[in-house]
Design a protein around this nucleic acid. Structure first.
Lengths: 122, 122
DNA sequence: CTGGATCCGTCAGGATACTG
DNA sequence: CAGTATCCTGACGGATCCAG
């Protein structure tokens, strides 16, 4: 429905690009973590299990660019930067949180499915 | 409950492993596609834009193993295999569909945020 | 038509060091 | 503390061929 805009930008490719950006382990975990409260860089690093310094910075940058995460830097020393979700980001977080909840609630179910699968494949 | 399975007893690692499996572009798109209707292999291939033969088969396998996707093969010739979501899978699909919807609804918002960001970074 | 198996290039992403 | 830049390895994932 009315997808073709101009010569340069196909909306479809933008959608794919954006989706590719958030359909990532780290992006999803970061967004979910920010759902609870505003966090600073190293607080996020501690909260998102196993994420590296580089990936956190990199992912936060694209999330900020796409208007999902809001970044506010204070000119203090040492510097202090707060990250929180934008209005759009909070909407997204609500659904993402559902995935995390689902994973948590179905762990035993999944374990059983795996055992069944293993026996099935011999 | 049902945590004490292996020597390590790390339920956290299972959760992380499962989450890593579904927090993927292809997995999310496949699950969302199956939300609408039962689909066959090549129907899925056509529906999930840009997915390769290999990744479709591979992702479907792990989704089946984790009890998210149900696979039913008919012993006909040529063979015919139907994929659909399990009960747990449908729960998951509901939240995943929210992400797809979000992406679709916020495209203009994102585009504006990008433009703003570009100007901001000089 | 479904779905392995193999080869192979690309790049995501970790480790490290450096700046403000 | 926050963020960037560089190097380098492993795996993700595409293309292709083979099988039931």
């Amino acid at each position: 429905m009315t997808v073709e805009s101009d010569t340069t930008g196909r909306i479809g490719s933008l959608a794919n690009e954006v989706f590719t950006g958030i359909a990532t382990k780290w992006a999803l975990l970061i967004i979910d973590a920010l759902g609870a409260e505003t966090l600073r860089f190293n607080q996020l690093r501690a909260q998102v299990e196993g994420i590296s310094h580089k990936m956190l910075a990199q992912t936060l940058r694209t999330l900020e660019r796409d208007g999902i995460v809001d970044r506010t830097a204070y000119a203090t020393v040492p510097p202090r930067v707060d990250y929180n979700l934008t209005a759009a980001g909070r909407e997204l977080q609500a659904t993402i949180h559902g995935i995390c909840q689902w994973t948590h609630h179905h762990l035993d179910h999944i374990q059983a499915a795996r055992d069944r699968f293993e026996g099935r494949v011999q």
